[in-house]
Design a protein around this nucleic acid. Sequence first.
DNA 1: CCCGTTTTGAGTTGCGCACCTCAAGAAACT
DNA 2: AGTTTCTTGAGGTGCGCAACTCAAAACGGG
Lengths: 352, 352
Amino acid sequence: MNNQQDGGPLTLRDVAAAAGVSLATADRVVNGRPGVSEKTASKVNEAVQRLGFRPLAAAAELARARSWRFGVVLPRGSNRFMLDIADHIRAQADWFRARRIAVEIIETDVFDADRLAAELAGLPGRFDGVAVVALDHPRIRVAIDDLVDAGVAVVTLVSDSPSSRRRHYVGIDNIAAGRTAGSLVGRFLGRPRGDDPGGSIGIVTGSGSLRDHAERRFGFGQVMTEEYPHLTRLVPVEGRDDPERNRALVRRMIADTPDLVAIYNTGEGSVGIGEALAEAGLARRILCVGHELTPATRRMLLDGTFAALVAQDPGHEVRSMARVLHALVSGQEIIAAQEHIRVEVILRDNLP
Amino acid sequence: MNNQQDGGPLTLRDVAAAAGVSLATADRVVNGRPGVSEKTASKVNEAVQRLGFRPLAAAAELARARSWRFGVVLPRGSNRFMLDIADHIRAQADWFRARRIAVEIIETDVFDADRLAAELAGLPGRFDGVAVVALDHPRIRVAIDDLVDAGVAVVTLVSDSPSSRRRHYVGIDNIAAGRTAGSLVGRFLGRPRGDDPGGSIGIVTGSGSLRDHAERRFGFGQVMTEEYPHLTRLVPVEGRDDPERNRALVRRMIADTPDLVAIYNTGEGSVGIGEALAEAGLARRILCVGHELTPATRRMLLDGTFAALVAQDPGHEVRSMARVLHALVSGQEIIAAQEHIRVEVILRDNLP
DNA sequence: CCCGTTTTGAGTTGCGCACCTCAAGAAACT
DNA sequence: AGTTTCTTGAGGTGCGCAACTCAAAACGGG
């Protein structure tokens, strides 16, 4: 019953026949089970190669007949972007269930390394795969490595811990994101003409200890130094992603900086910046670039308060996380090109 | 053998038990087969809702045990973007095979409506699903509708034919793309200051008859008229996406336009524009914005000849096309949010 | 040569579902 | 009442693979 005769799909049966072995032997080779001589194994592998056999994903998954438990460790709190991530996870519930995946969202204080490490230490046994918004901190690195050693598939999400042995990072290149913001600010301000004095750029950031924000500031600074040396960068102020704090900080910034021409916010809470500018009657007169698309930033993009946003798509990230964890636990290959998360530039005109 | 007792996965068996009907009846309802009274059907549906049942994707796919034949109709020729689309289709071969999908690429002259229509007429029977780079032309609309009537799932790819009854369009909103290009050009040129005379903007386009290019010109013009009235738009010149023609056109444009400040190319062949500028020693002095990321545009983005690209991701489009066609032929739902193709802005700093 | 080990073949089971047949029962007709 | 139509249940089959058992065959060492 060689399927290949009738043009049907290529099955393991065909491989076995082509290699001149039994189905059982072919199965042993393909699934890496012991008890096959090297000679026979290479015969089978050669046939797999020659025929281009790939196990039918659906059949393999069905036959494996096991379910997976994934945990996603997110920062507790009201950060809009993280809420979006959580929403997208819930929105993907059907996708997960159709693949026998149970997802649990674990909210914790990711800014407290000890607590996060303790949380991670309790995960082995509870989960087959874990995605974590990581702090780049030695204690977290160790906690992640322990998870990996316990046989859990670990990926970092949004914020990486590159020194750990996590299998994958799902998120954007934050240096590139900062550079992109820098180029937008530089180009939007225009080349200095004649006696153009340049001007000062205010930088609002979340916290000095977050790797993603630090990388964005770094990338932003790179471009500014290289390409726009006529512009002055003010010392970054930390608003901890809180709109209220950002508003106060920007209010003071406006008062203290007569030649303020632009503001770059590396994190959330952009709405506070917009409010401070509106109070001072400076909305649309001072160039603003921020990160992430939220209802608030969308509104400010539409009304012109913000000229551009540098963003990452939380939906893509959640789907990528799901695919990568699923591939890792079920021993499939990761298609790198597909899992690359893009640094997106959003203007008023290409709002999704 | 109620799986729910042991916390196992939720199966159709459980639904049937919960609804107090047999497996066969539950199956009839779930798969929309006839012969079930309305009362019983609603009982089953209620149980499906209440328990949150979803057929296990792998099992459903395996059981359906049928393969699909998809055809992708692409323009013949050397257009780099279309070659990328074809490459991505080939790169997805494994994904397709794992889902029993055989994909055939059909190259034809999409600019010749008669020939394209004839090509489409020959597809029913050969394919279960077809993706076509459509010309928005009455003859093509009829040909697409005929395909749909013949029971073929049809989606348009990259270029739409919105008046047809195609089930889905996989591609970007080209008006938004043109608007985005317009905003980039306008903002990059900067606000007029003092006695700033504005300047002229050259527009290079592929052909007047392509819907996507026309829409881009329209969107570009919208933004220019609304926001940057001090800038003059030259009459678009048609280079048919050919670098050589574009080079000649831009050479003439440079000679004829002393106040040329920017060039917008709605299509391909941007490399010819870069060459003409380089010859005249104007590279990086005249602002260029184009479309699509190719090896050539990537290079010109890096060397500063082009300031920005407005792009669509061919990989995303191919994957979306595959998902949508697969969903259509197998009666699954399309997740609209996931299938939205974004208008991407690519600067030197966020090159993927 | 025999004996023990390794390798291989043959076969079974089950994953969850789609799809089919057949027959029994219920309801709606004449 | 009998007859026809509709509805439901029971059961089987197969999709392609993973994972297993058991026995036969091949192999290696003494």
